[in-house]
């Protein structure tokens, strides 16, 4: 099941700046909250979110438990060539999600 919503333009003028927005389903459990049984619910967060453009790193975010559940991130990138934007989320309990979208630059 795809649990990610990515929004970026499908086409862009060369040299223009595009906005990339991404939402992902994730509880971002802080590790500070007691559960129903009174015991602390173990931490389960996304620790890192990175973006590449045709393989080159363009954005790297380190998250903490203070990032809201179902994390939303928006950032910008210069559209210099057509190709693939890759997004990757990694975190506790072996969490890894990778998504790619295409962008045509003319």
């Amino acid at each position: 099941m795809v649990n990610v919503l990515i929004n970026a333009p499908k086409t862009a003028k060369r040299g223009s700046i595009v906005e990339i927005k991404a939402l992902i389903l994730h509880p971002m459990e802080t590790g500070f909250r007691p559960g129903a049984n009174g015991r602390i619910i173990p931490r389960n967060i996304i620790e890192r979110f990175t973006a590449t453009w045709n393989g080159t790193g363009i954005f790297d975010m380190e998250m903490s438990p203070a990032i809201a559940a179902n994390p939303f991130v928006s950032f910008f990138a210069v559209a210099n060539e057509s190709g693939t934007i890759g997004l990757r989320w990694t975190g506790d309990e072996g969490f890894v999600v990778e998504e790619r979208i295409g962008i045509a630059v003319e």
């Binding site: 080159t56 954005f59 790297d60 975010m61 903490s64 210069v78």
Partner: peptide
């Protein structure tokens, strides 16, 4: 950074000229 959550760090991002604009948006817990 924040002052009263259990931990002071909220997030850090690394940027570069490829970003065009030094702007980042997200949602945090307070």
């Amino acid at each position: 950074f924040n002052e009263k959550n259990p931990q002071p760090d909220v997030f850090s991002v690394r940027l570069g000229p490829r970003n065009g604009r030094a702007v980042v948006g997200t949602r945090i817990k307070l």
